[in-house]
């Protein structure tokens, strides 16, 4: 790490002002929402910005609130506040549990959910789970607001669909139905996970048939990934699905197309997808139903 190069920090009072600042500074500016990834890259001299627009001080952007059938997490809510939030723990325990194991406590105390998604680091834990949960990101620019699904906002490694003047203001996560079980597992050796795997299954009243499933694998390739084919193979009577797990894992691995890197070979990651899909499936079916 090098000393940080000189830059100016701007603290807008509103999202609108932040959007104007981003538009004004263009490529010389960048959104700052915790900096646990951004400042690291700047200290390694991999990125250079003359202006950082700090949205952590914009009032209200860190709110965590329940809506009718969803949870709305303000983009600058820190991981730590999500992990500790009674509301998240009660309504969406899988989110609190996943967040508890993001990086380390110092990162969680500073890093924010919006910053994590906006930086699009390929090993993001939240991105993988949020894609499985069907979360949507609310973006606000100078000209208005729009909403994107997770696979629409994260388009590649460190690449998002955010327009230059757009700010991610909140993540809206639909609350799972009573019949749903959600699991997030990861395998990690270094600072970032080798693999993250989220699985949401709908189980019928008997507890023996899966009526709907969504599996997402992250960290093995540039962006979290899912596969219709894999999800289809995960639906049906429990015994049948168990036999199809290998095929489902293969379909998911094909869709993810893992890369060779310091975390492991593509072959090993494909194998791990199989191991973790099975583990997630077993845990999902063994976990008790949520309280109504």
């Amino acid at each position: 790490m090098m000393p940080l190069r000189r830059f100016q920090m701007h603290q807008p009072k509103s999202v609108k002002e932040a959007a104007e600042m981003l538009a004004h500074y263009g490529e010389k500016g960048r959104l700052y929402a915790g900096g646990t990834e951004l400042l690291l890259a700047m200290k390694h001299d991999l990125l250079r910005y003359e202006h950082l627009v700090d949205v952590k001080t914009v009032p209200g952007l860190d709110k965590i609130e329940a809506q009718n059938s969803s949870l709305r997490i303000g983009s600058v809510a820190t991981h730590r506040s999500i992990e500790k939030s009674p509301l998240v723990k009660e309504r969406l325990p899988v989110m609190a549990e996943m967040t508890r194991y993001i990086a380390n406590v110092r990162v969680r105390a500073t890093g924010t959910l919006g910053g994590n998604i906006g930086f699009a680091e390929p090993h993001s834990d939240p991105a993988t789970l949020l894609l499985a949960l069907g979360a949507k990101a609310t973006l606000q620019g100078q000209t208005g607001e729009r909403s994107l699904a997770m696979n629409e906002i994260i388009v590649g490694a460190y690449e998002t669909a955010l327009a230059p003047d757009e700010i991610l203001t909140a993540i809206e996560i639909p609350l799972p139905a009573r019949s749903q079980r959600a699991i997030y597992l990861k395998f990690q050796i270094h600072e970032r996970p080798v693999l993250g795997l989220a699985l949401i299954v709908d189980v019928d009243a008997s507890g023996n048939t899966i009526t709907k499933a969504k599996a997402v694998v992250g960290a093995v390739s540039p962006a979290p990934c899912r596969s219709d084919k894999a999800d289809a193979l995960l639906v049906g009577p429990k015994d049948k699905v168990e036999k199809q797990l290998t095929d489902a894992a293969r379909a998911l691995a094909d869709a993810a197309d893992p890369v060779d890197d310091l975390e492991g070979s593509a072959e090993y990651k494909r194998h791990l997808i199989g191991v973790y899909l099975r583990r997630a499936f077993t845990q999902a079916l063994a976990s008790p139903l949520r309280n109504p």
Partner: peptide, 10 residues
Amino acid sequence: LVNGSLLDYR
């Protein structure tokens, strides 16, 4: 050297 930082060197 491709893992010359504590992020990648465990």
